[in-house]
Design a protein around this nucleic acid. Structure first.
Lengths: 331, 331
DNA sequence: AAGGTCGCTGTAACCGGTTACCGCAACACG
DNA sequence: CGTGTTGCGGTAACCGGTTACAGCGACCTT
């Protein structure tokens, strides 16, 4: 139990070979005769030798791990994103540092500190300032996840434009007026894009877009809160376009809790197509986003090593609208 | 940008001192004259020198990071848990590796691999087998999170017994019969405890406990699925005791979606007291668990270094029942 | 003035792997 | 038999910090 871990030199002594041979056997490189290999392997097996990651990192000049910086971890979106990222990184034999900023004041400083312990960093949306991002990029390869490319830092993101299509659908096909957008455009680039697509769709339909969104976080509970405020107002909206499914589900729960009929009294749409969205009653009209693929693509970009001519600078993944009943479409 | 990072020896040359002095200045240890210190600091500042984490790790014989192994990351419970853990670790100047097993087949192998890159590991519930846990403990300090102590491996967990109180409340105070427990006792030690408290409460009330739980995962969507199956049955339950709030909320949404009245037709209880639980209509009767504190306590235990006489072997944190309306209590 | 103390700084040996380079033996070929 | 060639394996120099130890002035004691 307490015994200090074995070192390569100790294994070498036990197997009566040199450290070089131990290294060759343990990593399977170079030429080693079958007998010697077997002898070393037996010692490794018997004593449970595992090469120290720090010794290896120093020698190989790479940490063997990458980091992903996210605003938080709550909800199915991040869970799915991390799974996609993590499994791709694992397949490459590396490990993952996850850092949730949670709007901490010292987040930027921490992120720079992380750069000293990993080979590359994926940064979600604008969890950190542009200056910090640039400084980070000077220290390690960086990919922006769900945001825009910046000064040569590549980005991986989803196509947010279907929100425009959805808005047009509500305005034109269903003829709703008084739409409200729920979500904070300054909270993340994705929400910025969606808010703009929402406004543009109004202009395309020759309607004045709402001046302001209803600014709120991206969690389910935020949606319930939003429903409470919006639906208690003098002139409640006829339809609510949410920045993501989580808030949309929250709004739905809040609306149903107030005895309203959805979509009869209020139409609701989301973004993401999380599992819950097709399970609620009515089912949620939304935009399907390949979240797992987003994480995986980011990981691949990070691992393959960035830069060089012909490197990916901006990967925009396709999304698709999913029409269900919460917008008012028949079953 | 692309310039290779500076090493301590290069800084030493630039400041015309020895590496030892650079190290002394950068970590603030030992005696250095004010002038020399200023000179070295100026070079460090100007060239943006940051000591390599791998060199430091090797020399200090510690990685400066700890790992937390979880079954998954979805939902407010894990998010909260990680926040508590992470902020405590950060305060100690270390960083966090998060690993989600997601029921991967090779999870055990990966966990052992992680042990080579961190100073200590927190393992949630039974994400990994007892044998792997023991092997892990032989390589690094380990704490079990939300599980029982094992062979000298300490545990941090919450008191699950209030589920018994809650069950008694449903059976005796409200007089309900036909209770169903939703959750998989084999999925985690917490759920095992809760299922047993549920059964014991039946016996205490001189009633035959249900033979089987309704086995299902711990996410909201699992709850909706459970509601679909349970409420469509010949003799639906009068009350559902859920293993956690997430599934309880799912069951609630599913029940309301089928046009049932809660708690009129069906009473529901949960565990955790997540934010959503006091926002839904009716509000959820549940057990409040100090999730963030659970994570923080685990981190402190891990960091303070385990073992030694008088060390904490089993920290059980207090929980409290929160009576609201979903069980049938008046507003 | 000899010896001691104190403050500052440099030298070099670690930490635990990886790997360039070299030596050695066995074997093939002309 | 001399000269490659090939396969195997050891020596030692890295990687980038940390730190024990020693050296060296300056200043203080007796």
């Amino acid at each position: 139990m307490g015994n200090r871990r074995l070192t390569a030199r100790e294994v070498a002594k036990l197997a009566d070979v040199s450290v070089a041979t131990v290294s060759r056997v343990s990593r399977g490189t170079g030429q080693v005769s079958p007998e010697t290999r077997a002898r070393v392997l037996r010692v490794i097996e018997e004593h449970g030798y595992r090469p120290s990651q720090m010794g290896r990192a120093l020698a190989e000049q790479r940490h063997g791990s990458v980091a992903i910086v996210l605003p938080g971890l709550a909800g199915p979106y991040f869970s799915e994103l991390i799974q996609g990222f993590e499994s791709e990184v694992m397949d490459a034999g590396a490990s993952v540092h996850i850092f949730g900023t949670h709007h901490r004041a010292d987040a930027d400083e921490h992120v720079l500190g992380i750069a000293a312990r990993v080979d590359a960093v994926a940064v979600h949306g604008d969890t950190i300032g542009a200056d910090t991002l640039r400084e980070l990029a000077a220290r390690a390869p960086v990919v922006v996840l769900a945001g825009r490319p910046l000064d040569g830092i590549p980005a991986v993101r989803a196509d947010n434009s279907p929100i425009g299509e959805l808005t047009r659908h509500l305005l034109v096909d269903h003829g709703y007026r008084r739409l409200t957008f729920v979500g904070d455009p300054e909270g993340s680039p994705d929400v910025t894009d969606r808010w703009e697509a929402f406004r543009d769709a109004h202009r395309d339909a020759r309607l004045a877009p709402p001046r302001n969104p209803f600014r709120i976080g991206l969690q389910q509970s935020d949606g319930v809160l939003a429903a409470g405020e919006l639906l208690g107002a003098r002139r409640p909206p006829r339809a609510i376009v949410c920045a993501n499914d989580e808030t949309a589900l929250g709004v739905l729960i809040g609306a149903l809790g107030r005895g309203l009929s959805v979509p009869g009294d209020l139409a609701i749409t989301g973004f993401d197509d999380v599992p819950m969205s097709s399970l609620v009653q009515p089912r949620l009209t939304t935009v399907r986003q390949p979240v797992r693929e987003l994480g995986a693509t980011t990981a691949r970009l990070l691992i393959s090593g960035l830069g060089g001519p012909g490197a990916v600078m901006d990967a925009v993944l396709a999304t698709e609208t999913v029409m269900r009943e919460s917008c008012g479409c028949p079953l």
